[in-house]
Design a binder for these strands. Structure first.
Length: 208
DNA sequence: CCTATGATTTACT
DNA sequence: GTAAATCATAGGG
């Protein structure tokens, strides 16, 4: 397979329909290397997913859906797998892939991507020049790709927000999640996955 | 209506 | 390393 990224004249290689049906922890791992694409009026921007975190719903204190908490915000997590859960954190929008069967409120946070298409557009949106800092964090990548609350509930299987087949990671690492120190025992669950040694991973811990 | 809080980023000591 | 920015969401009065 060509290593060059696909252009819109060449149809993207779609993920199999049952891709999103696999268990959340497996899906979190399987998403690594997939190409996340967003089309807006400004143009197309895309990147390979290099870091994810799983949020396991009722039993996960760190999840918004802990204890089956069901609100206007978390409602989408109870729907079918493969739709987008976007929400605002401080001043940033974060994007998740809803996972698990219907009524199981599980989701996978996309924490970092490696820029592929639309790099100039990303620089403009982020107002920086250094490619390395464009998408190496959950709030950064949404701004670079132009993902907003308007994408809440969109299906990743159809434009403008798309997940398609990308690259196959050479090696995958697994460790504790980030930024949930106030979540009791859940803070130590090893539900974060990343492509080993990828420079766009949001942050390196000494030990995971 | 009012207040607390955060799955972050950025700048600073 | 620490702290401030800054606002939608959630929950209580």
């Amino acid at each position: 397979m060509s290593n060059k990224h696909l252009k819109n004249t060449n149809p993207y290689n779609p993920l199999p329909e049952d891709f999103f049906q696999q268990p959340t922890l497996k899906l979190a791992e399987a998403l690594l290397g997939c190409l996340l694409i967003n089309e807006t009026e400004e143009g197309i921007a895309s990147g390979y997913i290099v870091e994810t975190e799983a949020y396991m719903g009722p039993e996960d204190r760190a999840a918004h859906s802990f204890g089956n908490r069901r609100t206007k915000r978390t409602e989408i997590m109870f729907s079918e797998a493969g739709v987008a859960y976007t929400y605002v954190m401080h001043t940033h929008c974060l994007v998740n892939v809803v996972s698990g069967p219907t009524d199981k409120p599980e989701a996978i946070l996309i924490r970092a991507v490696e820029p592929v298409d639309g790099i100039e557009l990303m620089k403009k949106r982020r107002n920086i020049e250094i490619p390395k800092n464009l998408t190496n964090g959950p709030g950064k990548l949404t701004k670079a790709l132009g993902i907003t609350m308007g994408d809440y509930g969109r299906h990743f299987t159809e434009p403008p927000l798309l997940l398609v087949k990308g690259i196959t990671p050479q090696e995958i690492s697994r460790g504790k999640r980030i930024g949930i120190d106030n979540s009791g025992e859940a803070k130590d669950y090893p539900w974060r996955f990343w492509i080993t040694d990828n420079p766009f991973v949001s942050r390196h811990r000494k030990k995971d």
